[in-house]
């Protein structure tokens, strides 16, 4: 287990280093930050002075090393808008994003598992048909449209829930449902097909034959064995959730990191964009590390193979 952990940790670190490099390259594509920073009509001397101050007159590899060192220390420079370190601006918005992505994941896993199990248990009945139809629609509905429709129905027409903002648990309901729908649909489909496969296995027939209660067979012999692909899927879906939160937060005016990144982009506040992207990528890598470890715990054969 120790070696497995180390090699996965190494992969994760390489991935984060790669993301830092991508962010660096993209930030150099953006053009001269000095021109963006100074007001229009600044003199050539002022530009030169600022470039020297920012280290932009150094060779590109030296700038890269400096950037890498800064990223390692969590230093992405000052936010142009807030005049504070970019990372602290991003971290302030983190709880809101975590609350949203976390509840969306919870909604997705719980609803998805219930729906998927129902579809597998009631195979060939109307229950399976309805669940699968909803899952197909759920996977095809873009996050931002679903958000708008839910606002239209629950906030504008029925007046039950707020249209957006960050104000108590009621304001979390619609964003979480919106963001969680794709996850729900994906998990339901995956769990159903996984369960149908496991149900055909010999060990399930044996369990039934020796007279175990149907509930026991389902929980310990079918459900447990169908969960492994679902765990991997959660790792993949974490990326969709974090990416989807950018749009969901914009739709619901949710003060999270995703909306901050979009706003920072409009304001050309690149340190905040870089810090935000790095934080989200790091979280994603860490989640996938956990998923891999969990995967190893659930199925010892996987550990042996690596």
């Amino acid at each position: 287990m120790g070696r497995f952990l180390l090699s996965r940790l190494g992969d994760g670190i390489v991935a984060i280093w790669g993301v830092v490099t991508i962010v660096f390259v993209v930030s150099r594509l953006l053009g001269d930050p000095a021109i963006l920073l100074l007001p229009v009509g600044a003199t050539e001397e002022q530009l030169q002075a600022l470039r020297a101050g920012l280290g932009l007159d150094r060779p590109i590899w030296e700038q890269y090393v400096t950037f890498l060192g800064g990223a390692l220390r969590g230093d992405f420079g000052q936010s142009f808008q807030f005049m504070r370190p970019a990372l602290s601006v991003v971290l302030e918005r983190m709880p809101a994003t975590m609350a949203l992505a976390g509840s969306a994941l919870l909604v997705g896993v719980v609803l998805g598992c219930v729906a998927g199990s129902m579809a597998a248990l009631f195979r060939g009945t109307i229950v399976e048909g309805v669940v699968m139809l909803l899952a197909l629609l759920g996977q095809a509905t873009p996050v931002f449209w679903l958000g708008l429709l839910l606002i239209l129905l629950f906030a504008v027409d029925l007046g039950l829930l707020p249209t957006g903002g960050y104000d108590g648990p009621m304001s979390l309901v619609l964003p979480a449902l919106t963001l969680g729908t794709f996850t729900t649909a994906s998990i339901a489909r995956l769990l159903r097909s996984g369960m149908l496969d496991v149900m055909k296995d010999d060990h399930v027939r044996t369990a039934r034959a020796k007279g175990l209660l149907p509930g026991t067979v389902f929980l310990w012999h079918i459900a447990r064995n169908s969960l492994i692909p679902v765990v991997t899927m959660v790792g993949i879906l974490a990326g969709e959730l974090l990416g989807g939160s950018v749009v969901t937060e914009t739709v619901f005016s949710w003060p999270g990191v995703g909306r901050l990144i979009v706003q920072a982009m409009e304001a050309k506040d690149f340190p905040v964009v870089q810090a935000g992207v790095m934080v989200i990528a790091t979280i994603f890598v860490v989640i996938n590390l956990f998923v891999d470890l969990l995967y190893g715990l659930l199925d010892p054969r996987i550990r042996a193979r690596r």
């Binding site: 993301v19 990416g243 990528a281």
Partner: peptide
């Protein structure tokens, strides 16, 4: 692997910006 570590939406946003 590295590219898969970046949510698509963010990568696209960054490059378009």
């Amino acid at each position: 692997d590295i590219q898969l570590a970046l949510p698509l939406m963010l990568l696209a946003l960054m490059v378009v910006a």
